[in-house]
């Protein structure tokens, strides 16, 4: 199988999109999906539960030094940056916010792309700031696949637009249904 890691970055307007994606991912999907989503720093509980309701696969917040496993959806925990490290493990950090965000989408993307290179898929969804743009560029630089939600299909087009601007030409500009179709085709 070609791909080993899927990272999805989203902010304002992405929650329903992510929920929709997770509800369509089949039970036999065997690439780990990491969700780097902006969230309130002091609300630690409830988000993973909300995402789990419609998800076929289990959604969890990884612990520090936990291994990435296929068949799982990982959500970056509140008030931590989430890194992917060599040897297929997560690492957490409380270092300062990047793009006013912790978790910062850029950091999960750059570290994931560095580890998994061309076996990475990076997807940027709706959002109202520019986090994730640099990260998607790094996915592209390392030879991974880059997908951006069609700004016209996004509730908040700032983040998809910023990603397109920074990364230049991406592999696909998709509406949410096309992203789902693409992911299902990987099984």
């Amino acid at each position: 199988m070609k791909y080993k890691l899927i990272i999805i970055g989203g902010s304002a307007g992405s929650f329903q999109m992510v929920t929709k994606i997770l509800s369509k991912i089949p039970a036999n999907f065997n690439i780990p999906i990491v969700l780097a989503l902006h969230r309130l720093k002091h609300v630690r509980h409830g988000f993973v539960e909300a995402l789990s309701i419609k998800s076929v696969l289990p959604v969890i917040e990884p612990l520090d030094k936990e291994s990435l496993k296929p068949g799982k959806i990982y959500l970056a925990p509140a008030n931590y940056h989430l890194y992917v490290e060599l040897a297929g493990k997560f690492a957490l950090s409380t270092e300062e916010a990047v793009n006013h965000s912790r978790p910062a989408i850029d950091l999960t993307f750059t570290t994931g792309a560095y580890c998994y290179k061309e076996k990475t898929i990076g997807i940027i969804l709706s959002g109202a700031n520019r986090d994730g743009a640099w990260g998607l560029k790094k996915v592209k630089d390392w030879g991974g696949k880059t997908i951006v939600q069609d700004p016209a299909d996004s509730q908040m087009p700032t983040m998809p637009k910023a990603a397109l601007e920074k990364a230049g030409e991406v592999d696909h500009i998709y509406k949410i249904d096309e992203i789902i179709h693409f992911l299902k085709s990987l099984v």
Binding site: R44, E61, L63, D64, P77, Y80
Partner: peptide, 9 residues
């Protein structure tokens, strides 16, 4: 320890 830290290993 921090709420997402891990000593299980």
């Amino acid at each position: 320890i921090g709420n997402k830290e891990n000593i299980s290993f």
